[in-house]
Nucleic acid binder design. Structure first.
Length: 219
DNA sequence: CACCAGGCAAGTA
DNA sequence: TACTTGCATGGT
């Protein structure tokens, strides 16, 4: 598996890299985007982020002070806007109360502690937590998403219903620990997924398919 | 028109 | 524990 993932990475990096992920000007934007993109196309998230940026509301202070109903209306294009407003409030309130809204202070705490903290917040599951930890807080933790699972499954490397932590472990134990590598690999998997590994596949042109042939129908 | 998108939590049995 | 359902907009 180690050699296979290394092979995947080389092909993807040659094809797409370097990616420069996560797309966002600030760490706060990465955090907000991580919640807004839950089960949602990124183009819709961009519209919501633009609504916040336009009037200077993409700051920690503005978001903490903004009433939940107002926030919900501003993030409306990202879908699930009522529940996402509640989730953002819960997350930002936590950072406000525990760290005074200071991400540098938050960053000093160890990874396992921060991960448990984030997962305890209503609306923050494993993917959202790991995205924030890796891309906003600079922690060395791998992000698993729907594309990661679908790509490995379609190429016959894992079961389609493999659990989050187990799949994460495959990436984290088989490679040298390096957060830059984790950032880039996850980004590359998303690029490949968007282009060739959607639910309706286009395996013919997949750059990985020649060396790692897709399995016909295992999902 | 139907289906899908970088999840997550609450409800049911 | 293991499944199912609600949440909602915008693109294809």
């Amino acid at each position: 598996m180690k050699d296979t993932l290394a092979g995947f990475y080389r092909i993807l990096e040659d094809h797409y890299g370097p990616t420069g992920w996560w797309p966002g000007d600030t760490d706060l934007e990465v955090i907000v985007g991580a919640v807004l993109t839950q089960n949602t196309a990124w183009t819709n998230v961009e519209k919501a982020l633009e609504n916040l940026k336009r009037d200077g509301n993409l700051t920690f202070r503005a978001l903490v002070q903004m009433p939940e109903r107002d926030l919900a209306q501003r993030i409306r294009p990202s879908g699930y806007f009522n529940i996402k407003a509640k989730r953002l409030k819960a997350l930002l309130n936590h950072i406000h109360e525990r760290y005074g809204g200071d991400l540098r202070r938050m960053r000093r705490r160890p990874l396992p502690t921060l991960r448990k903290e984030l997962l305890a917040i209503n609306g923050i599951g494993p993917e959202t937590a790991d995205s924030i930890l890796l891309y906003a807080l600079g922690k060395t933790t791998f992000v698993v998403d729907a594309y990661t699972r679908r790509i490995l499954s379609r190429h016959g490397l894992t079961e389609a219903d493999i659990g989050y932590e187990e799949l994460k472990g495959i990436f984290e134990t088989r490679f040298d620990v390096d957060r830059h590598f984790y950032k880039e690999f996850h980004a590359l998997l998303v690029y490949l997924g968007k282009d060739f590994c959607r639910k309706v596949p286009r395996c013919e042109e997949c750059p990985v398919a020649s060396k790692y042939p897709p399995v016909i129908s295992t999902e």
